[in-house]
């Protein structure tokens, strides 16, 4: 019983450390990003690393998701004569939920792990200290470019994932379910509204920020050599993924409340 209480207490303390640490990191990042010098070249470089180089993974995930969904919905609804609803179901599921969430989880795994391990290695080999010792700021040169690039690139990758996912659904609908491609496109265009798109985009802005901040935080606080880098990397991916999955519900709910309130 005591051991459980101690573990729980330690968990709460760790949670407070994480909350306080990330809050301070966000505050410093916002403050330092307001003042010169601005490292535009580093931001562009990170956009390439984070955005462009994640395109293959996002493409493959989105394509297979769209194809599997069309197949599952197609065969499932066929029994009830509901095959015609496949385009609508695939499009709405992908644009509202699966596109943003799957893309974010993929990025949390690929980019989150990359950021945490890179910064963690820099921390344990004193490169972060060297940046400070040379009179420059690791927040400005390391953290801010990654936060901006991830927050900016994730919505763009999600747009691509949505398009590719629907395209995957269309391929299966045409080849496996015998649907006409123009019918599929027409149904998607008729079903999906700008609102659906905006909910997904809004969520990915938040998710991108969460991935970058938590990965940078765990990287900057890595200690105890290579083992510490491994632990930091795992924590970054797990924390980002949990926050994405858990906050997804609340963000969706919040957005719907806003929509009802404004309409």
């Amino acid at each position: 019983m005591t051991a459980v209480a101690i573990s729980f207490g330690k968990f709460i303390v760790d949670l407070m450390h994480l909350a306080g640490g990330t809050a301070l990191l966000i505050r410093r990042s916002i403050r330092e990003s307001l003042y010169r010098p601005h490292y535009l070249r580093l931001i562009i470089d990170q956009c390439y690393q984070i955005g462009f180089r994640s395109m293959g993974l996002v493409f493959a995930t989105a394509l297979s998701t769209g194809m599997v969904m069309a197949l599952q919905f197609g065969y499932g609804l066929e029994k009830f004569g509901g095959k015609l609803y496949v385009p609508k179901l695939v499009a709405l599921s992908i644009i509202r939920e699966l596109g943003p969430v799957f893309t974010s989880l993929m990025l949390a795994a690929r980019v989150g792990a990359g950021i945490a391990s890179e910064i963690g290695s820099m921390t344990v080999t004193q490169q972060i200290d060297a940046i400070r010792a040379l009179g420059t700021s690791p927040i400005k040169t390391i953290v801010v470019p990654r936060i901006i690039a991830t927050t900016f690139c994730l919505p763009l990758l999600t747009i691509m994932a949505n398009t590719v996912g629907i395209f995957g659904g269309m391929i299966v609908s045409v080849t496996e379910l015998g649907m006409d491609s123009s019918f599929f496109i027409q149904k998607v265009a008729y079903t999906v509204t700008m609102q659906d798109y905006m909910i997904g985009m809004f969520k990915t802005l938040v998710f991108g920020f969460v991935i970058a901040v938590s990965s940078c935080y765990f990287g900057m606080t890595a200690s105890a050599g290579t083992r510490g880098v491994g632990i930091a990397t795992t924590r970054a991916v797990v924390t980002s993924s949990i926050i994405i999955v858990m906050s997804d519900f609340f963000l969706t709910k919040l957005f719907w409340i806003l929509i009802k309130w404004t309409s």
């Binding site: 080999t125 004193q126 490169q127 200290d129 060297a130 010792a133």
Partner: peptide
């Protein structure tokens, strides 16, 4: 200036 023991070079 600080000269680090391991160099702390940017790899």
């Amino acid at each position: 200036a600080y000269v680090f023991q391991g160099g702390a070079l940017f790899d």
